[in-house]
Write a protein that binds this DNA or RNA. Structure first.
Lengths: 227, 227
DNA sequence: ACAAAAGTGTTGAGAGTACACCCATGC
DNA sequence: GCATGGGTGTACTCTCAACACTTTTGT
């Protein structure tokens, strides 16, 4: 009752306990043919020795999106990535030290952009192995599962797959991204027909791959941020 | 930098300013053939005289879902509704008094369950008129638009429409709900074919409607909370 | 009998599936 | 030449939109 908005007019910040608010980011990329997630290594309790998502506390003068960008910048040296809010987690005991509400985001980057700087304790791990792992801090395994599920369904109706590739790519590469995100093989001929109107060919070809070269494409109408 | 999670280990709550966290709920129902939203009336600044979504500050020992339920219970006398998290809003100046991060939810209830108790200042307003109205507090017009858009797309692939009806309903009623959520007329014959496997007929019929009675249906497999 | 709303069968277009096949390169 | 992966055309299936039509009530 003391928290009822009817009392908001006379609300004095000092009168009430307030939770801390963090932003945690699930950064996905594709490496070695699997979907991988960026995680940091915790050295202090709680969850010492466990892996945790990169995250920061929200500053008083920044938006949530800015906080998510900052988390990626300071933890992974990354910027200009596809970034979208995922879900907000608020179980009272999700952090044993104190009440922390976490606004989670997910991000998608191509492999080459995911080169981590020297001296980072952050590294990539296969996303599907995290569910079974026992050394994941807080509720971060659940957050990763939520992000994994989001991209699995969103790839069906949006263009997020392109965010995991460079600007130029081949159709076999693009199909591989779809297959990894969906977790199943696709028929080559049908895949191409469905994607035909979202891509445009360049005059370049791959070479040196020991077999027939493939044409290099880019996304059609690359001005729009449709994904 | 001071908010970087690397400093988390030595984090002392007293060292940092923390935002307040509120939960605001967009309660939708269908009245008089239109989609309507529950809003309260503000009497004190800021935004005195404006309409605002029902909301509460998150208590230190409750989950976000519980806070959303509490908002509906204290503001609208409602319980046992379809409730789902929508989006989290964190613009630094969205509340001019102080930093408030709002976790928004949306809820769906049938008209009869949306009878408000006596002495409430809350009332229902057509959802589509809110976008044009100028007397909406905070960023609540944007939150409502976000919820409106969510149910517009979600009705296409989920069963949320049933949450706006009683347990028993006629097919014309169900079709009307779909048409209101989608904002367009549907072909009766095709609509019935698509919904056929999600409903089951009862042996009851309507009567007294001045025209041919319609059969009363209920949702098939009503055990699952699929919506 | 008529108006109005409930309810049903049929058809055609288009998307999606499965399959068969050809092409270019390295070895 | 042959293995391997890149690339394309066709035929079948199923969903879905559109239409035409019948049924049942109150007046």
């Amino acid at each position: 009752m003391a928290n009822d908005r009817a009392f908001l007019e006379s609300y004095d910040p000092a009168d009430y306990d307030r939770p801390s608010v963090a932003v945690d980011v699930v950064l996905f990329t594709i490496r070695e043919g699997t979907l991988q997630v960026l995680m940091t290594h915790r050295t202090e309790p709680p969850f010492a020795g466990c892996r945790a998502l990169p995250g920061v506390f929200v500053g008083m003068d920044e938006t949530l999106d800015e906080a998510a960008s900052r988390a990626l910048r300071t933890k992974g040296g990354l910027s200009h990535v596809y970034l979208e809010q995922l879900y907000t987690w608020g179980a009272p005991a999700r952090d044993p030290r104190m009440r922390v509400i976490s606004v989670s985001y997910y991000a998608l980057v191509p492999e080459r952009a995911a080169m981590l700087p020297e001296g980072t304790d952050a590294a990539f791990y296969p996303a599907d192995s995290v569910a079974a792992a026992g050394d994941i801090a807080f509720d971060h395994a659940e957050i990763i599962a939520c992000g994994r599920e989001r991209i699995r369904t969103k790839v069906l109706w949006s263009d997020i797959a392109f965010s995991l590739l460079e600007e130029e790519f081949t159709l076999p590469q693009l199909q591989s991204v779809y297959e990894i995100l969906l977790g199943q093989k696709l028929y080559k001929a049908n895949f191409r027909k469905k994607l035909a109107d979202r891509i445009e060919p360049t005059d370049k070809m791959t070479s040196g791959d020991a077999h027939r070269p493939s044409r290099i494409y880019r996304r059609r109408g690359d001005k729009e941020e449709k994904a």
